[in-house]
Nucleic acid binder design. Sequence first.
DNA 1: TGGGGTTAT
DNA 2: ATAACCC
Length: 478
Amino acid sequence: GGAGQGDEEKEEEEEEEEEEWRCPQPGREAAPPAPTGHGKWAPARNAACRVVVHVDLDCFYAQVEMVRNPELRDKPLGVQQKSLVVTSNYEARRLGVKKLMSVKDAKEKCPQLILVNGEDLTPYREMSYKVTGLLEEFCPLVERLGFDENFVDITEIVEKRLSQLQQSGCSRVCVSGHVYNNQAIDLRDTTHVRLVIGSQIAEEFREAMHARLGLTGCAGVACNKLLSKLVSGTFKPNQQTVLLPESCQDLMRNLDHIQKVPGIGYKTAKRLETLGVRSVCDLQAFPSAVLEKELGASAAQRIQKLSYGEDDSPVTPSGPPQSFSDEDSFKKCSSEVEVKEKIEELLRSLLDRVSKDGRQPHTVRLTIRHFSATDRWFNRESRQCAIPPHLVQKFGKESSNIISPLIAILMKLFRKMVNVDLPFHLTLLSVCFSNLKDVPSSKKGSIGFYLKQMPPTSSSGKSVQEMEDGSQGEGSAS
DNA sequence: TGGGGTTAT
DNA sequence: ATAACCC
């Protein structure tokens, strides 16, 4: 369904920023009290919609630094990685510090700027997962996007509250926060009602984040991920906005460039420009057949639907991370010894993270970037390989010397990419563990595990022997 | 111009 | 293994 196409007749109602609404008068075209399984005669606008919230933390790294050190609260603050200010707080933004500004420019614009180093992402990563975890307490369908954004599919919570409301005969529902375009709410429209309830839940999310974690952020509420994400940015620090379907086209056409559409990145935007497609309107009106020849049928259909605000992609629960990586960039690295030292440093912190996670990676990858005066991106190369099983087993364990065999593997991967007999000039090294698997429960070979986890079966009661058998290959390292 | 992540091909 | 996308 074209979300914004069906312009049903609806009466104008009085509305303000925070509204109160009465239920439909009995006798007028009242919405049937059917949560989802309505009959075939129900008007199309009563079809159940998804309700998706996009939660977007305000200037995340800077906020985390301010939570860690409240003295920074009211001062202009920037988070620095190498020669860049990657994020700043609103005080600094007021004084002209923009996202991803060079330290040089930022200091010129704002000499009082306080800078903290943010190259170690550990505090941000930890806070990020606290936010996701908090949202997961409300509802299991939480998808992460980067460290500072989450999508939550709250359709089920909304349905539950809707039927509670209907059963209790409650006649008032109040929107929380802004309504995009200041559009009038029609409470006879169950989609409106669902989204209004969604706005209340979004408010609860933000209240919980502030009360429990001290964080502020924006939220957008809409019928799909695309729209919720786009609408969350309409009122910016620490506010929320709900999009009603009738304003969908407005939202999409207000985007000044196609690259603002999430899912249309740098490359496709460039290719579309070649075709003369610059605005969202251009993309909507562009002949599908031509677009499919240029981008392939799949991508073409997907992005053209995106241009109409249509997005049926589900909120996919992220769960634990699929990979752990650690990287470092630098001006120059040109000897094998240097490479080995850098790799070892990356490896140490990675192994720490992996062992805290508890799962075992089965793949390791090394990525490098060669120096290039022009075009700093694109020239990354990587090689990966399976981690030999005998090393995989050593992952959760303390003390075992897993680090030197891993360095050996990574140096082999390095030599697959770089002929060390020739001069080289690297500007980045990255190590990534992936293909993470839960450690098989039959092989959790630590003493502590057996002492604590003795299961109810009688056969496992004689585990003193099993413990010694089972720990032969693994526990011996300690 | 950071230091991360994901999915598709 | 790379290329695209996201932050």
